[in-house]
Design a protein around this nucleic acid. Structure first.
Lengths: 118, 118
DNA sequence: CAGAATCCTACCCGATACTG
DNA sequence: CAGTATCGGGTAGGATTCTG
């Protein structure tokens, strides 16, 4: 594994672990069908229209979602998760479960560190 | 799985996937012994002293590293990975490998998206 | 409807200087 | 040695307005 690969992998992991991307991917996978922009906006609670646009475009650039524009009036745009994106989500799942399972341990560590004399 | 757990797990994943934490953890695990601050600073190439301090303190708060201060002159501080931290790294490894293995596919997707007519 | 453009704020982060 | 403190540029990200 080269340093360049290492750096690229780190960047990708950093991108998908940002606040919204994983959430968006989960919504798209759960839908099991293309989802309109406004539906995603509803289901990813708290995301702004600007951030959702940015997030979806970034995911598209990484080949994790597809964007399909239907040139109608009013326009319709549908997003779907790609096989690559679904595979990535599947790879993250065990890690995710581990984290959730160990949250109590982490919270405990935090309490212990914070309560220590300076 | 509650929404609160979900949010906490997301935050944790976001923290550890930032630019430096995983790199620092790998250095500490590779060392197999406590490592002084200045050694970590050398081995995590490009990190500033400020960011390294921040990163190590954050990792300590999450229970992933320990910080041991030897009150000497000059002071000596040693950091070590905890079992929890080592386990977390182990959980990330398969994901990491998947990402590295699929970098070509991701790069290809990027080229395809970028080269498309606007 | 699905955004693009604009404005504005908060904070991230590096560089530098200082300290126990 | 291992930090802390301070300053400052850059950028992430929300709110709002405009458009095909």
């Amino acid at each position: 594994m080269t340093d360049a690969e290492d750096a690229l992998a780190r960047e990708l992991l950093e991108r998908i672990s940002a606040k919204w991307p994983l959430w968006v991917l989960q919504v798209l996978r759960a839908a099991e069908a293309p989802v309109r922009f406004s539906r995603v906006l509803e289901r990813v609670e708290g995301v702004s229209q600007k951030m959702l646009t940015q997030t979806l475009r970034a995911l598209e650039r990484d080949g994790l979602v597809t964007r399909t524009l239907y040139p109608q009036v009013p326009p319709r745009v549908e997003y779907a998760i790609t096989p690559l994106g679904a595979e990535l989500l599947a790879q993250i799942l065990p890690l995710w479960r581990w984290i959730v399972g160990h949250l109590p341990a982490i919270e405990a560590a935090r309490a212990e560190v914070d309560g220590r004399p300076a």
